[in-house]
Design a protein around this nucleic acid. Structure first.
Lengths: 354, 354
DNA sequence: TTGTATGCGTTATCAC
DNA sequence: GTGATAACGCATACAA
């Protein structure tokens, strides 16, 4: 910038003013300066220098759980991303993705979750945050503009979500209402420790994944209310969010001849169950009803009964609020948005056989 | 950092050394300093300050053509992204996405394409770059580590691609080999001006989109070699990369009763043609053969004959090279990688009826 | 091993 | 409308 100033015969701050469009420089001067800059091949104010002084980098961050590639594999995360991108592209900020590990790595005090907090981005969108994640403290302390999606409520942070409890009750009521009594429950994961298989009451209580825990709690309570005890439900944890883990977890449920319906805490799990059912020769819905959660695009194609929620809408809302706060330049009063959900009855659920 | 230093009873550089793991500070001191920092809630060195001094931000950029949301809508772009993310998550750098507008916005000398060049990221991956895009000069001048995918070759910049010319010849040979003579050609866009419809020879020559131009050139040459002139081909430009534009462009081709085959420059276009054919009651492959390009996941599901290329592989390679160069801290000698392609014959192509 | 001084490229506050 | 000057948070060369 100094070189540009020298070449244009003005002071260095004058060049800065020219770029920021300040009224402190005349229109003709501004044009002259910009022309000189262009001829010198100066690309414009350096983001690093600018951000150090101004406090803004020009990027918002999206914290992706565990692995970056999940965001592109999981239709759920992808829809969120689409929503965010739609809003984001209207503004002039970039979108920075980085992983947020659920387990803290030993000895890594300066780990990746801090990148965001340490100034990599101006604001932050986080979804499915575990209960006690350390990033929470940093956000609060640094007052980083942030919005959380489908996570525990955080004091003073914008929040987008749905009524997971009620939606899950709807799910279970639908299945019980059809007459099912022997019900399998397939959840993604209750703790980020990779464990899978049957879920003990203790593990259920110890769960740190708020969304899954809420849904499971609703399943259990609703079943209870209909006279089906915890031990009568067959609850299995997949240990993760992928199709493969879903199929593995579904397999034993499908071998359990007594079970006439499976309630899954996500469409990915439910669709994995459908795939596995086909592989094991179990007829849906004749022998087995399956219900999912989310209504991802593939659910419609495979005729899955599920709970619809607007994933794109959540992403949009989150990005909109975040950009609004950045635009304002000062903290907004925390907003809360709870999106509606609805049951979409399709062909994967029916009355039990006998 | 100064506060931490004061609280720990050391100098500010000592804290810096503690974080960088320099041997200039004793292990016990280091531990002490880090403990004090933690108790103070200091999250670690600020990225902005650090990057200004060290020249590294800890993020690589992906320039997305036109709109950010394209990257998540287009299966082609998504596969690329998956490949990049797979590699990226192994490293400790974030992935920053930003749009690269194909038309320069008037009066916006400090536009978004410069963000990357102005220090937002340490390195850059760009795909399907138009011929004369201004970012090229900036990259060259600033010597920003970059790798381009499916773009014009750039002097001194890493390159990943395929042999578009040969792959497109294979495509057209397959169709002509089946006996088709009246062939429709459906391309995405030749210039970023939003124009659509029949493609004049002049427009073909003026095309700035290297990939599409190469493919079209191969189609025309191959047809010529088999005695089919430019004017006998019915060439239509969709004006963009979306399914909707593809269907609109396919419609007139489908109404042209003489045409027995459509060669599309991407699977998105080819699949849009299949959808539109179904809508217009045209039977594939009985009345019409359709061939695509890319072999995106959906192509297999819809039995589309196409050219297979490893989209994920390209993304992986690009990210790997970029990270390697950043790791090295100095320019690598430019690498070039040309991935193989192969024809995948499925059910959407067959001999013409009569 | 530790502390001191300097500069990275900007922007904002002044006094002119 | 302009030109000095300080400060942003840090990393390194150098002196102690």
């Amino acid at each position: 910038m100094k070189d540009v100033a020298k070449a244009a015969g003005v002071s260095q701050p004058a060049v800065s003013y020219a770029y920021s469009g300040s009224s402190k420089v005349s229109a003709s001067q501004r044009e002259h300066i910009l022309a000189v800059a262009a001829s010198l091949g100066y690309p414009g104010p350096n983001v690093r220098g600018r951000s150090l002084r101004s406090g803004r980098v020009g990027a918002i961050g999206l914290a992706v759980m565990d692995q970056l590639s999940y965001a592109f594999d999981d239709p759920w995360a992808l829809s969120l991303l689409k929503g965010i991108a739609q809003v984001n592209e209207l503004s002039n900020v970039a979108l920075t993705l980085f992983p947020l590990r659920s387990k803290k790595l030993e000895g890594e005090g300066a780990g990746d979750e801090n990148l965001a907090v340490r100034g990599l981005v101006d604001g932050l969108i986080i979804s499915t945050l575990p209960d006690d994640h350390p990033i929470v403290q940093y956000i609060a302390r640094r007052a980083i503009p942030a919005v959380v999606i489908d996570s525990p409520r955080l004091e003073g942070v914008h929040y987008v979500g749905i009524d997971d409890r009620q939606a899950s009750i709807d799910q279970m009521e639908h299945i019980i209402g059809l007459g099912h009594r022997r019900i399998g429950v397939l959840v993604e994961r209750l703790l980020p420790d990779g464990k899978k298989g049957p879920v003990s009451k203790a593990r259920f209580k110890a769960s740190t994944e708020m969304i899954v825990r809420e849904r499971l709690a609703a399943y259990v309570d609703t079943a209870q209310r209909h006279g089906i005890g915890y031990d009568e439900l067959v609850i299995v944890e997949a240990g993760g969010f992928t199709n493969t883990l879903g199929r593995e977890a579904a397999a034993p449920l499908l071998r359990n001849a007594g079970i006439t319906a499976i309630v899954a805490s996500s469409d990915v799990m439910a669709l994995a169950t459908l795939t596995q059912a086909a592989a094991q020769g179990v007829q849906v819905p004749e022998q087995l009803s399956v219900i999912g959660f989310d209504d991802i695009p593939e659910a419609g194609l495979r005729d899955l009964t599920t709970i619809r929620q607007s994933l794109i809408g959540k992403g949009e809302w989150a990005a909109r609020i975040l950009l609004e706060e950045l635009e304002a330049g000062e903290p907004l009063t925390p907003r809360v948005k709870i999106f509606d959900t609805s049951l979409v009855a399709r062909g994967s659920t029916a009355r039990p056989a006998s």
